[in-house]
Design a protein around this nucleic acid. Sequence first.
DNA 1: ACATTAGGTGACCAAAAGGTCACATGTCTA
DNA 2: TAGACATGTGACCTTTTGGTCACCTAATGT
Lengths: 104, 104
Amino acid sequence: MFKALADPTRRLLLDALFDKGGRTLGELEAVVTVRQEMTRFGVAKHLRLLEDAGLVVTEKKGREKLHHLNPVPIRLVHDRWIDKFTEHHVTALTDLKRQLEEKP
Amino acid sequence: MFKALADPTRRLLLDALFDKGGRTLGELEAVVTVRQEMTRFGVAKHLRLLEDAGLVVTEKKGREKLHHLNPVPIRLVHDRWIDKFTEHHVTALTDLKRQLEEKP
DNA sequence: ACATTAGGTGACCAAAAGGTCACATGTCTA
DNA sequence: TAGACATGTGACCTTTTGGTCACCTAATGT
């Protein structure tokens, strides 16, 4: 699961699924190959890893396979190293950072 | 930063620092080598990676170096793939899961 | 002062991961 | 039913990563 997050291509795939779920392998391949040089097989392999890690869930629809982002494992990572008390401070910090970046 | 999270030894180090911060390399070496076979150099290398990734911050105290966990990058990972709306649902799920596990 | 203790550096080797290809399976549609 | 389409599998190669070792620097305390 952590190893699944370690690769930039896989993070790009998660970003794409975060933006819009229910995508097929073909669509995701298109998303990836815009920025990187990679064959369909590479993308499929990455998706397989993400699915095994539980970060992506799939449903079969005829001959195509639809992919969705599963946020639960990510939340568990969060909870592993950020307790409720710390969360209060840290969200204040990151929210402040976001506000500053939005208004230049 | 994501690659830093991908190794089990490094996650063990983060767990140790989450439990109690301000530890020296020697202490952390002791923590690790209880469970795994590893030399001091291996631990030092992992700590170096964690520090470069911003997950661990250090302060020098005489001849020893104290290590602390930095939760900010982890929160940013969380915010990358969990929006405010989803967070509400997902925290409900994980909190429920935690309650069920606490009371067997 | 000097042995001891805490930590750092660069080279090196074995193991694992990323990527591609030839080939295979199942599904839709004309 | 034939052919195009969407995806899956296993072997193979290259690059990256985890780990150790020999050696080095700097602070401590008696």
